[in-house]
C-alpha cells in the first residue's frame, strides 16, 4: 500500500516535470516578447534591458529552465505580466474559487447521479429511467459553455430566479479568507446571509459544469448495476429470498461503485477543463478564467502555473480515488 502510494507520487513528480518542460518550451515559442509585454508599450530600451536581466531572460534557455524549476520548488511561479503580481498571489485568490465550484459540481453529480443510476437500473423503463436516458444522451453532447449561456438566458434574464454570475452579489463583501471557499468561510465566521448568497451563486455554474459528468456517471452506475444484478450470486441471493432492497444496496450498488469511482476520478480532469469554459460564462473568478485571460494577454507565467497546478490537482485526486477502491471493495489491495 505504502509502496503503491510512493510509486504513484514519484510518477506524479515525473508528470509535473514533464509538464513544466512542455509548458516552458511552449512559452518560448509565444509570438511575443514577454519582457516587452511586462514593461508595457513605449518603455525605454534601457528599461527593457534592465527588466530582461531582472527576470533572467538574458540567460541561456537550459539555465532559465533550471531557474524556473528552482523557483517552482519555492512556490514561486514568477510574475504575472497582467496583474503585475506574483502568480502565486494570483493563485491564492483564484484557486479556491475553482475548488469550490468543482466540489459543488461533484456534490451535484453524486447526489443526483447515484440515485438516478440506481433507480434506472432497478426500474428499467420507468420515468426515472427515461429521465436518466435523456440526461445520459444529452449530457455528453451539450457544450458546457452554450448550456451556461442558455441557463443564464432562462434563469437570469427571463425568470430572474438566479444570478448571472460572480460568487456574491454586487457590492457584497466576501467573508474573511480562511479556506477561500466562500461557503465554508461564511459558515465558519457565522455570516449566514453570505453563505446563502454564495450557495445561490454556486447553483447554476455547478449544475452546468457537472451536467456532462452527471451523464457519464449515471450511465456507468446503471450499466454496472445491471451487470452485477445479472450475475449468478445475486440471482442466487434472490432465489434464497433475500429482500430486493438489500441486494441492491449490499451487492449491486457496492460493486457498481468501483467503476463509478474510476469514472469520477477521470471526470475531475474533465471538470477542471470544463471550468475554463464555465468560469468564463459565469464570470467565476477561478483559475479557469484566470488562465483564459492569461492566454488572451499572453501571460505565459500564469498559463504555466495553471497547467502545473491543474496537473497536480488531477494527479492527487486520482491517487485518492485509487485509495478509495480499498474502502469500497475489500477485495482490492495494493
Amino acid at each position: 500500500m505504502i509502496r503503491f502510494v510512493v510509486r504513484r507520487l514519484a510518477f506524479l513528480v515525473l508528470v509535473l516535470l514533464g509538464i513544466s518542460l512542455i509548458t516552458f518550451v511552449l512559452s518560448h515559442i509565444v509570438p511575443a516578447d514577454p519582457v516587452r509585454l511586462y514593461a508595457g508599450p513605449r518603455a525605454t530600451p534601457a528599461t527593457i534591458r534592465l527588466i530582461r536581466h531582472q527576470l533572467g531572460f538574458d540567460q541561456p534557455l537550459p539555465q532559465q529552465y533550471l531557474l524556473y524549476l528552482s523557483n517552482l520548488l519555492h512556490g514561486n511561479f514568477g510574475y504575472s505580466l497582467e496583474s503585475h503580481r506574483a502568480v502565486s498571489a494570483d493563485l491564492y485568490d483564484y484557486l479556491p474559487a475553482t475548488i469550490e465550484l468543482t466540489l459543488a459540481a461533484v456534490v451535484f453529480i453524486l447526489v443526483v447521479g447515484i440515485p438516478l443510476g440506481v433507480l434506472s437500473a432497478v426500474l428499467p423503463g420507468s420515468i426515472v429511467d427515461q429521465v436518466g436516458r435523456v440526461i445520459a444522451t444529452t449530457g455528453v453532447a451539450l457544450p458546457a459553455f452554450w448550456l451556461g449561456l442558455m441557463a443564464q438566458l432562462v434563469f437570469f434574464d427571463l425568470l430572474g430566479w438566479l444570478p448571472a454570475g460572480g460568487r456574491l452579489n454586487e457590492s457584497a463583501n466576501p467573508p474573511p479568507h480562511i479556506t477561500g471557499l466562500y461557503t465554508v468561510d461564511s459558515l465558519v465566521s457565522g455570516q449566514f446571509a453570505t453563505f446563502g448568497q454564495s450557495l445561490f451563486h454556486l447553483l447554476l455554474p455547478a449544475v452546468v459544469l457537472g451536467y456532462g459528468s452527471l451523464a457519464v456517471l449515471t450511465r456507468q452506475i446503471r450499466a454496472s448495476m445491471l451487470d452485477v444484478m445479472g450475475q449468478d450470486y445475486v440471482r442466487t441471493a434472490r432465489g434464497k429470498g433475500m429482500p430486493r432492497r438489500i441486494i441492491v444496496i449490499r451487492h449491486a450498488l457496492r460493486n457498481a461503485l468501483v467503476p463509478a469511482t474510476t469514472v469520477m476520478g477521470l471526470q475531475i480532469g474533465y471538470l477542471l477543463g470544463g471550468a475554463l469554459l464555465v468560469e468564463d460564462v459565469f464570470s467565476w473568478p477561478g483559475i479557469g478564467r484566470y488562465a483564459t485571460l492569461a492566454t488572451l494577454t499572453l501571460d505565459y507565467n500564469a498559463i504555466m502555473a495553471v497547467t502545473i497546478v491543474a496537473a497536480l490537482m488531477y494527479g492527487l485526486v486520482n491517487l485518492v480515488v485509487d485509495l478509495l477502491y480499498v474502502v469500497i471493495d475489500p477485495r482490492i489491495a495494493y
Binding site: Y300, V306, A310, A311
Partner: peptide, 17 residues
C-alpha cells in the same frame, strides 16, 4: 503523462503559444 492532466488546459497552453 499526457493523460495525467486536463486536456483542455493543455490545449489552451499549446494554442496560446
Amino acid at each position: 503523462m499526457f493523460l495525467a492532466f486536463p486536456a483542455l488546459i493543455l490545449a489552451l497552453a499549446i494554442a496560446a503559444a
